[in-house]
Design a protein around this nucleic acid. Structure first.
Length: 637
RNA sequence: GCCGGCUUAGCUCAAUUGGCAGAGCAACUGACUUGUAAUCAGUAGGUUGUAGGUUCAAGUCCUAUAGCCGGCUCCA
């Protein structure tokens, strides 16, 4: 008797060993049809897996992440099969499922073009129609290498050779196609009902730029055509909120050929930026920070002392002044430390929180540049916290809370990553361990979930990163908290302790927005440029219906300006519908429409970007309403 | 930096097989005095990213180069 317990707590009993798919069938045909993979005792596997002892079982469908991945993984095999049919000489590399889809890397001695994608898609459709069963089989290392040698799949051989000794080497066969693969897969190719190939891109073998560049085909797959269409439609919609497009349309910023990666902020974008900076200063004052400003160019010797010369030189720009070597700062910390050193510090002053909106320049490779998201000069909303070792946890926790407060205000979902010691780094193992543990403790104290990135820390210390999503779901690092025992050492900074002796402080480097530029990019996409009123470049647009209302309009404009409201008046000789349309496209939160009626009654007619015509209001009531909205930073999207 | 694609008026895009560079919007001028997402008419706007080459003839073909886009890589 085999007992199989299901997710809902029910227990099914079978007289003999049974396949997961048969269990699904016994639960119901609906589930059986939707089933893509199974989770047996917590392990994801094929539906054809035989259960021969008491187990827990979960049938995975497209609703489950692992079910989705199995389907898309199978889709990537179908892609590979189609490519092999059409272009037999192509060598296979790897083809996993990823968020939102799948890819497969190929080594072909010709360029894969978009036209070829259409052909490949057609062949994939055939393979789906032919509905091959995916059969799993296991080989020992020698047999596996032999099989792949016969097929001249050199990349597969390399993969097999590097598998650990105890690893099961499994293959999946569908029709004439066999691929090395850990699985799991859906039962047959016919399950992949709706798919599309999306793009071709170069990708280095194993992500290493010293290796050969392969050609990667990206695609996505769903169980239903309607889901695929919905996804493709979502991508189209997302393109409309791309900050590069909106930034151009709404004149927020521009990047010109003369300065690749060096954005220009135009008047409208500058308003958003200044509002963010004002807000930043306000919360930092409230949280006990002082503000400094350090120079952009400093003597190169400083960067030797800080370790940047050894660890960051490739990303830095240099210049000469009077024959002396200078560097353009890629980070604010050395300057911040020099500011700290300007005075003696007592333990009574600690933690000393010093903020700086610092403009840094970093050389990014040309292919990495991306609108405001990745640029070559940007302003970090930096701060350096100097403290005693006993204050680390408390201070890190304080920063985590501040970041959380800011992101929540904008309505962002975010995820957190902890990065540990990289290969290229300085300091002792003990110092790194202490620093890393301190960050973990603070994360735990804050109750934060986080992912660990081994070896991804800064060269001077481990860090916690906060990632935000752009409109198509790519994530960008924004906030970061980095713990540093190295710089204080290198710069020999100290404070006078209770005992009257000199002690070494510990440092935190942290940013909340990360880079103002990137943050504005993310905000633009998040709000589709319909910024909340407190950030909107123009908050109110006054639209006279005819020039009989122009004088009234001008007087209202002055009154609103006196109340510190950003207002513009459209006196052009155009129809009201035209003026409204334009204001709406410019995403102005409020329009005041003035015709003969309003002039007569001395009131105003208000239209909101979001809700349309709001009817007649008294000016003072409108002012108090909008003032409150600005004051409370209401995100009225 | 690497792989592939793209680059035509301020913006969005046209231009058969190489055969006179065009439209809408925006701008400017004029008329219209208008009530909640586009009034009409006219004017001007270009060394087709840049530099070479092939050709009787190049936006179109070839080479180089810059920038952009999608990825890889890298990172705020």
């Amino acid at each position: 008797m085999i007992k199989i317990s299901l997710k809902d707590g029910k227990v099914l009993e079978f007289n003999e060993a049974v396949k997961a798919e048969d269990v699904a069938k016994s639960i119901g045909m609906g589930l059986y049809k939707a089933a893509l993979a199974a989770k047996i005792n917590g392990e994801v596997c094929d539906l054809s897996t035989v259960i021969d002892k008491d187990s827990s079982l979960e049938i995975l469908t497209f609703e489950d992440k692992d079910g989705k991945w199995a389907l898309r993984h199978t889709a990537s095999h179908i892609l590979a099969q189609a490519v092999k049919r059409l272009y037999p000489g192509v060598k296979l590399a790897i083809g996993p499922a990823i968020d939102n889809g799948f890819y497969y890397d190929f080594d072909a001695d010709f360029a894969i073009t978009p036209e070829m994608l259409e052909k490949i898609e057609k062949e994939m459709e055939n393979i789906v129609k032919e509905d091959y069963v995916l059969e799993r089989f296991v080989l020992d290392r020698e047999e596996a290498i032999k099989l792949m040698s016969e097929k001249a799949e050199t990349y597969k051989i390399e993969l097999i050779e590097e598998l650990p000794a105890n690893e099961t080497i499994s293959f999946y066969k569908q029709g004439e196609f066999v691929d090395l693969c850990a699985g799991p897969h859906v039962p047959s190719t016919g399950k992949v009902k709706a798919f599309k190939l999306l793009s071709v891109a170069g990708a280095y073998w194993r992500g290493n730029e010293n290796n050969k560049m392969l050609q990667r085909i990206y695609g996505t797959a769903f169980t239903k055509k309607s889901e695929l269409d919905e996804y493709l439609n979502m991508l189209e919609e997302a393109k409309k909120r791309d900050h590069r497009k909106l930034g151009k349309e709404l004149d927020l910023f521009t990047i010109v050929e003369e300065g690749p990666g060096f954005p220009f902020f135009l008047p409208k974008g500058m308003v958003v930026r200044n509002q963010l900076e004002d807000f930043w200063r306000e919360i930092h004052r409230k949280n006990g920070y002082k503000e400094i400003k350090t120079p952009i160019i400093l003597n190169e010797a400083l960067w030797h002392q800080s370790g940047h010369w050894d660890h960051y030189k490739e990303n830095m720009y240099f210049t000469k002044i009077d024959g002396e070597d200078y560097a353009i700062k890629p980070m604010n910390c050395p300057g911040g430390i020099l500011a700290y050193k300007n005075q003696m510090h007592s333990y009574r002053e600690l933690p000393l929180r010093m903020g700086e909106l610092g403009l840094v320049h970093r050389h990014e490779i040309s292919g990495a540049l991306h609108g405001l998201m990745r640029v070559r000069c940007f302003t970090q909303d930096d701060a350096h916290i100097f403290m005693m070792p006993s204050q680390i946890k408390q201070e890190v926790l304080g920063v985590i809370k501040l970041i959380d407060y800011v992101y929540k205000l904008f309505g962002f979902e975010y995820h957190v990553e902890l990065s540990t010691r990289p290969e290229k780094s300085m300091g002792s193992d003990e110092a790194w361990e202490h620093a890393t543990n301190s960050l973990i403790e603070a994360l735990n104290a804050a109750g934060m979930d986080y992912k660990v990135n081994e070896g991804d820390g800064a060269f001077y210390g481990p860090k916690i990163d906060f990632h935000l999503k752009d409109c198509i779901g790519r994530t960008w690092q924004c906030g970061t908290i980095q713990l540093d025992f190295q710089m204080p050492e290198r710069f020999d900074i100290h404070y006078i302790g209770e005992d009257g002796e000199k002690h070494r402080p510990v440092m935190i480097h942290r940013v909340i927005f990360g880079s103002i530029e990137r943050f504005i990019g993310i905000l633009t996409e998040h709000y589709a440029a319909a910024f909340p009123t407190w950030l909107a470049p123009v908050q109110v647009k006054i639209l006279p219906v005819t020039d009989r209302a122009n004088e009234y309009a001008k007087s209202l404009e002055n009154q609103l300006k006196d109340m510190n409201i950003r207002v513009e008046t459209d006196l052009r000789n155009e129809k009201i519908g035209y003026k409204i349309r334009e204001a709406q496209l410019q995403k102005v939160p409020y329009m005041i429409i003035l015709g003969d009626k309003e002039v007569e009654a001395g009131n105003i007619s208000v239209r909101s970007r979001k809700d349309g015509d709001l009817g007649s209001l008294e000016l003072k009531d409108f002012i108090s309403k909008i003032k409150e909205e600005i004051e409370k930073k209401i995100s009225n999207i």
